[in-house]
Nucleic acid binder design. Sequence first.
DNA 1: GAAAAAAACGAAAACGGTTTCGTGTTAATA
DNA 2: TATTAACACGAAACCGTTTTCGTTTTTTTC
Lengths: 342, 342
Amino acid sequence: MKRKITLKDIAKELDVSISTVSKALKNSREIGKETTDKVQAFAKLYNYRPNNIALSLKNKHTKNIGVIIPDIVHYFFTTVFSGIENYANSKGYNVIICVSNESFDKEVINMEMLTNGSVDGFIMSLSAETQQKKDFNHLIEVQNQGIPLVLFDRVTDDVSCDKVILDDKKISIDVIQKFYDSRKRKIAIVTNQGFFSVSDKRAEGYREGLLKNNIFVDTALELKLNYKNIDENAIRHFFQNNEVDAVFCVNEIFAISCMKIVQSLGMKVPEQISFIGFTDGLLSRFSNPSLSIVAQHGDKMGEMAAKMLIDKIEAEFEDDEVATFRTEIIQATILERESTIN
Amino acid sequence: MKRKITLKDIAKELDVSISTVSKALKNSREIGKETTDKVQAFAKLYNYRPNNIALSLKNKHTKNIGVIIPDIVHYFFTTVFSGIENYANSKGYNVIICVSNESFDKEVINMEMLTNGSVDGFIMSLSAETQQKKDFNHLIEVQNQGIPLVLFDRVTDDVSCDKVILDDKKISIDVIQKFYDSRKRKIAIVTNQGFFSVSDKRAEGYREGLLKNNIFVDTALELKLNYKNIDENAIRHFFQNNEVDAVFCVNEIFAISCMKIVQSLGMKVPEQISFIGFTDGLLSRFSNPSLSIVAQHGDKMGEMAAKMLIDKIEAEFEDDEVATFRTEIIQATILERESTIN
DNA sequence: GAAAAAAACGAAAACGGTTTCGTGTTAATA
DNA sequence: TATTAACACGAAACCGTTTTCGTTTTTTTC
């Protein structure tokens, strides 16, 4: 097992100083051609690579970015992450990922773990619990330490930082409009119970979309489900007791679950009842009928988040003016498949 | 923006030496009670945290582990990763993740990126291209540098290291047996074209399972699909031209795709034709009928891999005896849902 | 041929910790 | 009271780099 070779090793072996080796390796004009060649040849032979940790310590940056997401076994987050990883890698950054499991405590523990110099910045999406508690001190703290932060998707107005979000409300209005245009009038929404900023925005859009078309907003047509434990009886009950011809779901699991039950109740999708969900995952692509959805373009979101973060990181050492924050909006699109009619 | 406070800052402020501060913070008996209290109070007040990078440099380990997987937008890998992350975190390790995108080049680039001191060890699953090329020099190289490596799922006999795999072959035999026991005799397999070690093992099990029950192995009943571009016509053609009453698929996407087409061809699942797939993902749970599958228990796999790696890492500084490698086998289980009969 | 400039290299500080090994005080012991 | 042990602390090395600032030697220039 050959140990990693260091500058010191090379220096000793070639009988020059460490600084000479370092400079020779970077083709400094300070060092003579002969020495440079000798050093480089030796370094190549022994496959010398500078130690990253030492570089980090010296340069005060790690070229690591921390990503904290609520869940990894989750299509949307996974696509966002993919976008982040891609962009980050292309810029020479590695990404350290922590999952909060929707828990506030794990979120702060994870942040603290990474705040001690391990990363140059954070990209994160708030856990359910954090959104519920509305306690953002860990985010503020991190920012105070000069570590840039960008929030995506599940964001909050209570902390000022860069953000990248979907136009959840607008696209939801569009969804309702599409339903309306295909002569649907009894439009239901299936959303999360609890405290998801995005679900709320989608519900807002739903209501506004109805109003815009002079449809009475009937709260009886709003079904709230628990994302980690879907109550099929509640769904069945809902559809048995409400006359509905279109359903807007805030995620694909809700949509598929409802669609399956509705079909088992003997209704035809999309002829009698149309469905549109969120998230362009496998489920919607392979369901029967395949589900029309609003595509969130997670990869673009991730890419954008990574770009914003890295821009901030690399601008950091410029000046100490007050930072200025942007929030970028990713355009969602409706992808029509078999669960809707025109 | 208050900068991070260092030992030096505390020392200067309290007019003691850096070493005193360091020791006081660790409750060294070398330091007097008064000084210790004073230092700790100050440190707490200013929320001092030791700089991780400095520690890494000093201690020659980073408490980071590198995970390289072929794809992140992928249920199975995501569950494995979840297991890794969980265990690693509980042991105070962070995990840096890189995705190879099934590309050999990206795999070696990623490894090289992390080999320069950024991680204490690797957990990985081989990319498709790597399995095809059978070039494992980057793995050997990493091991030569004394960095422990554990391979999971997509492994190779060509490099000796710790491994954790599924009993792919055995469980496949079990699947065939289950088909046989429910009076199925015309059993097909839908597998990957190409070079996936796991798919091959499953196909082996399929054949052995047939043989065991004295069923003729008919290669006409082996359908090979491209995982990134599923040819629906090939599937249709296959099922129109072969009489089949049970299908074993090496992943859930193949299973769902086939099931959908078979149903559109007017066959009843599971009465006329049964399906069993691999991967306990959303697709199989929410398909119609829901798909019976062999559960790979990715989380357990990840946990095991992480445990093996961390054990190796922390044993590292013991002795220089020849390392001894284990390969752990995770027990797969068949999960019956609606796509099979008894 | 002497002064100035250029070339080639090394010493040392710095990044932020830990740790070993002094060293000066005070307290205990003979 | 002299000697030793215990106590409380500091200096310095070390981890592996980079970089500034000498210093020495050689080359130019006048």
